[in-house]
Write a protein that binds this DNA or RNA. Sequence first.
DNA 1: CTTAAGTTTGGTAGTGACTACCATATGGCG
DNA 2: CGCCATATGGTAGTCACTACCAAACTTAAG
Lengths: 212, 212
Amino acid sequence: MGLREVKRERTRRLIADKAFELFCDHGFGRTTVEQIAAAAEVGPSTLYRYFPTKETLVLEFVDDCLADAVSWFRDQPTVEPRDGLRTVIERVLEQLESNPDRVRAVFDLAERNGSVSAHLNELIWRFRNDLAAALVRRLPGDPLHAEFVAALSAGITMNVIENVVRVWVDTPHAVNAQSLAHQAMTLLETGALPLPAAQHGSGISDNSRHDS
Amino acid sequence: MGLREVKRERTRRLIADKAFELFCDHGFGRTTVEQIAAAAEVGPSTLYRYFPTKETLVLEFVDDCLADAVSWFRDQPTVEPRDGLRTVIERVLEQLESNPDRVRAVFDLAERNGSVSAHLNELIWRFRNDLAAALVRRLPGDPLHAEFVAALSAGITMNVIENVVRVWVDTPHAVNAQSLAHQAMTLLETGALPLPAAQHGSGISDNSRHDS
DNA sequence: CTTAAGTTTGGTAGTGACTACCATATGGCG
DNA sequence: CGCCATATGGTAGTCACTACCAAACTTAAG
């Protein structure tokens, strides 16, 4: 029962790799799915069975990296949220760093093409949701409030990842992503970031109660 | 020199309104641009001169709200970053609250359609960049570091807006967005959010162990 | 008023992503 | 070898979007 799945995975990889190659050579907009299918020696129908849209051909790698880290977090219900979120960041960056050229190419393609950029942003948003859903389960107190807190925390976490990666891909080879992430987390911890400040004395009561 | 621009703005509004109406009635995917053009009594070519893609028909209102707030921030170089970012949040929410049905419909359409969701996320990302670019100018020190800090701050700010709005649109009428935003900012200020924590003693900075 | 220049408009033809569908081929198993 | 499930390739069609052109309209000048 394994030969079929092996073959499936093989053709899947083949299509994705050929597509990526063509995108890098001629650009995303100037490459048609017919050309990709021809390069992978499959029919266009087959291609669409593996990848629902042209954009997923570009984003598969990033998608996998994020999926891996978030599913890890989901399977670790005992770890402290702060440590878990840090590890999520580290795991994502570690995997991305294992294939710098690919990551750079992805962000390059996203920068030049609005649709790719849009789908990349939506991908990040989806994992922010997944991360929030996994996080909310280990937050005590009012579920509605916990959901809000989890969404904010997950958003900030993904925000760190995103900005670290963007700086990392724009820098030739000088910095490593992990230390950038460490720097970002330190900025968060020490309050060195100019965050939007709540205006005290505005008459709005603070009904957020958190037990320590 | 004014009659032309008046007419332009009129037809622009007409197209956008008719489109939105059709989207709400029959869904985004089930509405063709030809139908929209026919409803607005213009040719398809004319429609495309005003709106580059179908998605922009949906997102115009949100785009305007964000553009207004960010351009306000850009034109206030003297205000403190913390206060400025808070005001950005307040201004965006204020404008969105002025048209709750429209906002609710936009997020509803985004939830049901991947492409709309993707373009919404990209729109938010673009304004996060704009906000960061406006913010970096008033941050002292190393420009590279300031850029990083600004990107993180802008990201967190947009993150607050996004999550507040998502909670707000999902809640019938009980909460108001401003107090939710206030709550979020208080959470940020008091450190009540479980943020990813930099691991001390990992060899990057120092060796002091930090338990729990 | 009239003419000229610039702008807005509608229409046509085409490209290409994506879908629905069907006939065929291929692998897994008795 | 036959039986079933799945994988594949091809066809026809829809629809977003583009490039282009000719007609209508707006504005300004003679």
